[in-house]
Write a protein that binds this DNA or RNA. Sequence first.
DNA 1: TATCTGTGATAGTAAAACTATTATATCTAA
DNA 2: TTAGATATAATAGTTTTACTATCACAGATA
Lengths: 225, 225
Amino acid sequence: MITGIKFSLNDSLYSRDPQDTELGQRILKHSIILIDDIGLENFTFKKLALEIESTEASMYRYFENKHQLLLFLTSWYWQWVEYLISIHTLNIEDPGHRLKIILKSIINATSENALTEYINENLLHNIIINEGSKAYHTHDVDEENKHGIFSSYKELNEVIAQAILALNSNFPYPHSLASNILEMANNQVYFAQHLPRLTDIKVPKGDLSQLEAMMEYFVMKLVKD
Amino acid sequence: MITGIKFSLNDSLYSRDPQDTELGQRILKHSIILIDDIGLENFTFKKLALEIESTEASMYRYFENKHQLLLFLTSWYWQWVEYLISIHTLNIEDPGHRLKIILKSIINATSENALTEYINENLLHNIIINEGSKAYHTHDVDEENKHGIFSSYKELNEVIAQAILALNSNFPYPHSLASNILEMANNQVYFAQHLPRLTDIKVPKGDLSQLEAMMEYFVMKLVKD
DNA sequence: TATCTGTGATAGTAAAACTATTATATCTAA
DNA sequence: TTAGATATAATAGTTTTACTATCACAGATA
């Protein structure tokens, strides 16, 4: 029986791998719930410790600080999306079809259950939408990048870029389009929820079908010859 | 003689308008320099006060906290870009030409001097690229939005959306494309500088011509029938 | 039986993020 | 010209955040 997925994440994303212990898994589970609830700025390890009836010091055994925790969560998420894409595109040959499935996978990742008890993918997706870009908008990007902190994001980006090139090998900006797809998919949901004048789509009750239609329209119109 | 531009910014963006006093202007000038230098996370009012030989308490008379300061700076910036667009598109009738000029204005805003002694537009542009999205990625977006905090961003977005519709009135997603233009223009520069595998462009010595070519390619291909 | 591993309990520090009070210089309107 | 308003400085304080350090202890492991 499958009880969960464990991803191999870069060493620099934690002090002790939280996937390996019961407390570690509780940290992941409740940090997702708490960050989703109060936002990253208001989130502290003290509040988290209180929530899971542990101590602040124990939180620091797993993560050096909350930024490292955010990096862990975002890396986990992007690795999961890449995994979903790999499954959904198995045996799909047609490049146009493949690219559409990739878009669907990125957008609807949240509705799939990774069978990981300690990670609520729905809430994690919210966190990615709300806080995801803060993972790399930091003064130490270059240093963190050297340590391979962003490799799961870059790998996912490469998968998308290759799918774009498979559809049109002359497309001049595959990597920029790929990163823009990832950013836009999150941003437009955020705008629909909080700054609706910045978008044309709606996300009624979390229904992402309008986003999907728009993303497909943009990408296909751009990539096709 | 023109000595500077003063924008009318929403009351909620400050406690006391920093544009009106000498200390306020020094706060703006040196906060831009300091945030650019050490990053928003490491920036504190205490460090700023030290820099300009004033006191922490005096900083708090102008801004409630550093997030409000960031909101002020980003609003100022977007209002300035809208002003540049309005100037550059005067007497330009052709919609395609107009839209291209808008893109140029957004991308090259930095190379223009607003003649505002206390605002270094170059550094401010860097801050927008590095920290801009944090202005609205906050737990209190909805509350802040109610107070009109984001109106300059939304107005600029509307100007772009209208220019898109002028070129093709059937384009189904003018607002989403507009917001994506603004986000993408910043993100792709950031990626080129820090995570080059996520983009296809380069920004050699701050030269943004590759970005301009790419943005024009994307937008024109999308908008044209 | 010894030791290693993971956690809890407790205590502490330095800095960040404010708030409050008083003093004083300057400018401004009666 | 003078009383009051305005802007800033100086000082001192509080609470919270973001850590670090130490010791005790239970359970697994060798």
